[in-house]
Simulated scan of single mutants.
Amino acid sequence: MIKTYFKSALRQLFRHSYYTFLTIAGLGLAIACSLFIYSYNSFQYSFDQFHTDKDRTFLVVQDLKLEQVEHSKGGSYAMYNAISREIPQVERTALYIIKT
């Protein structure tokens, strides 16, 4: 009985080969995109998970807008001083500068 089901399914697949290819290609693309999104998100959420106060740790990101927008982690020394002096909720600050 199951043998006839497989035979009829294969017969239908070969009879409508264009739609079969389109469906299988779409399914493969959807699975690939889903896996890429999952791996990207798990990579992004894996940073700084070793801290004891990871729910209270933040990283300030600075956008520099010149001819094109440049995103950089960290910031200037002036931003570091302003955050540590003017925001009373901040307990501790650390300066993080990336040389490019």
Rank of each mutant, 00 (worst) to 15 (best):
Y18C: 04
S84D: 08
A32M: 04
V60R: 03
G26R: 03
E86A: 09
L66D: 15
E86N: 15
G28P: 03
I24Q: 07
S34E: 06
Y18N: 06
T23W: 06
A78S: 09
A25F: 15
V60A: 10
K65T: 14
V60F: 08
A9C: 07
I31L: 11
C33G: 13
L66T: 15
R92L: 06
F36K: 09
I31P: 02
T20W: 00
Y77R: 11
T4Y: 08
F58T: 04
D48N: 06
I2F: 10
V69T: 09
N81P: 04
L27A: 12
I83W: 01
V90W: 00
L29A: 14
L66Q: 15
Q68L: 09
I87F: 07
T93R: 02
E91P: 02
A94L: 09
F36P: 00
R15C: 02
L27C: 06
Q89V: 09
I97S: 07
I83H: 01
I24T: 14
F50Y: 11
Y19W: 12
G74W: 00
K54A: 03
L10V: 05
I83M: 05
A30H: 04
P88Q: 07
A32G: 03
G26M: 07
A30I: 10
E91Q: 05
R85T: 13
L59S: 12
L22A: 14
S39E: 13
Q62M: 11
L27Q: 09
A9H: 06
F14G: 02
H51L: 15
R85H: 14
L27F: 11
R11F: 00
S17C: 02
H71E: 07
Q89T: 07
G74D: 00
K54W: 01
Y38G: 04
L10S: 05
V60H: 05
E67F: 14
T93V: 06
Q49A: 03
E70I: 11
A25Y: 12
F36H: 12
F43L: 11
S17Y: 00
T93D: 00
Y18I: 13
A30V: 06
Y19H: 13
Y38S: 12
F14Y: 01
Y45H: 14
H16G: 00
I98G: 06
T93I: 05
A94Q: 07
H51S: 09
K73Q: 11
H71L: 05
Y38I: 09
T23R: 06
Y40L: 13
Y40A: 14
S72N: 06
I37W: 13
Y96F: 15
L10D: 02
K3W: 04
L22R: 15
L64D: 14
R11N: 04
R92A: 04
G28E: 02
E86K: 13
Q62K: 14
A25L: 15
Y80G: 02
F58N: 01
P88E: 10
A94G: 11
A78H: 08
L66R: 15
S76Y: 04
I31G: 02
A30T: 10
L29C: 10
S84Q: 15
S72Y: 05
F6H: 06
T93G: 00
D53K: 10
H16L: 03
N41Q: 14
